[in-house]
Amino acid sequence: MTQALVQIREFLSKKTVGIAGAGGLGSNCAVALARTGVGRLIIADFDALEPSNLNRQYYFRQQLGIPKVLALKENIRRIDPFIQVDAFTVKLNPDTITQLYKDCDVLIEAFDKAEMKQMLIETALSHWPDRPLIAASGLAGWGKTEDITIKRFGNFVLAGDDISETHEWNPPLGPRVSILAGMQANLALEFLLNGFQFKKS
């Protein structure tokens, strides 16, 4: 590994990211952050893996029926066994959110349903007004890559095209969901690597 990567990983190894939801956004974002070397991930989701999830979520066919967070923990272990993954099979509500995610440096909203997104954002912004929060909204369908933007409200950042809602005839597809998950991970790095500098010898 190059010195640059070693130094980035060393810095990130002391960081914790919370991810609320382990579907298309959460699973892809978690893997991106694990590959970059974030030391600890706290992930919660109550769903088990279904066949329809495999079009965009970072899982494998053999894992069908398994709780997503356990499957994700295993997938990350196979990429890097030194990343700590705290996996919780729970339905998130304001109480469980404030308990599980109290120690995070950055929190990522990775739910599917708009009402869950709203609940998490309200809870997080009222409990931790200064902690970076990264959410996504508007990612269904394909193409329209240039429509994807981010909006900043202080340390709360919202990524997406703001309009492409999922419904029966506008499903979420792998590429666009992965772009958003990657943007969320990249925004998280922006906060996590704040103050980081390479030591060049």
Partner: peptide, 28 residues
């Protein structure tokens, strides 16, 4: 400062305030 759903009809906005209304749609 976040204004929760159930506070929206109790919290008053006055001259000079900065209000942000952010909409959220399903998908993830």
């Amino acid at each position: 400062q976040v204004i929760k759903v159930d506070e929206r009809d109790k919290v008053y906005v006055k001259d000079g305030d900065n209000l942000e209304v952010i909409h959220l749609i399903s998908g993830g």
